[in-house]
Amino acid sequence: MNHALPVVASLIAMAVVFWPRYGLWARWQLAQELARRIRREDALKHLIKSEANGRVATLNSLAGALQISAANAASLLEELEERELVTFEDGRPLLRPAGRAMALHVVRAHRLWESYLAEQTGVPELEWHPRAEEREHLLTPEEADALAARLGHPTRDPHGDVIPPPHGDLEGDPGQSLNTAAPQTPVLITHIEDEPDTVYRQLVALGLRPGMRAFVIEKTPSRVRFWVDGNEQILAPILAQNVFVRPLPEFRTEDLVEEEFLSGLKPQARTRVIGLSPACRGQERRRLLDLGFVPGTVVEVEMISPAGDPTAYRVRGTIVALRREQANLIRVSSKEASDR
């Protein structure tokens, strides 16, 4: 009888540790397997991104991107070769079809998840990328397709990157960087590079987003001074090179300067809507459109809450109250602003 207790206790302990699937050991192994898979997928992602951007991936670039030692990167590449995902040519790693498909899926899942977070949740902008970095490894291709359908098959993610179609190819070349844009020439921001994270955070904090219109005012070796959506900004060149733009030949700089935001409108003033800012996304954007904030609509400031915010605007015969942050998303013409 005396021996029963220790025996039962050790049996229970053994079960807790070694129980198939639910035991600690099994779980630990699963977690290890997942961690290894994530590392493989991250490596493949690095290869396909380098390729799309016309760069050559090397052992060192891989080690840098994954923040691992060169020795670990080498064994990782060996593992990828064993699994027939990667082949070597002149000592450089190249993707094989299976590896390319896997890499493409990861990129697709990442960008879809970012789109989902941007369009259908209230998750703050700075968390989109880190959350997508985790989720990209957990979505199956079928889940990614279902997500795409739910989102209405978006073609670009919130950073302006093209979401690759299933079995498609990864498009590179997001355009020229703001660094190289000619002064006094209107451009459209097409892409904000989300890596490295520290740079991305600064750009987001400045409110820069794909879809904004800008022009460089002046460029010196130490800084880039530029106009963007009504404000003047200054960036160090190292930051500006992560902002990608394409020229807007149909606009003159004067056209851009004439724009201001609805929030800047004085009480009793009236003006015309030019458009919604790209920072306005998802349901919020649809709602504002449905309320009639479309280009050409005349808006009037009707009254301001005694607490100072929100402000009620008269738009298409209806009075709609908007908070200051929302009014900051609606571009209006400053030229046509007039008192009633």
Partner: peptide, 14 residues
């Protein structure tokens, strides 16, 4: 808890 929920403000004054 509610950080991720969608938020769209609009208030119509009839």
């Amino acid at each position: 808890l509610l950080k991720g929920e969608v938020s769209t403000f609009s208030l119509e004054l009839p």
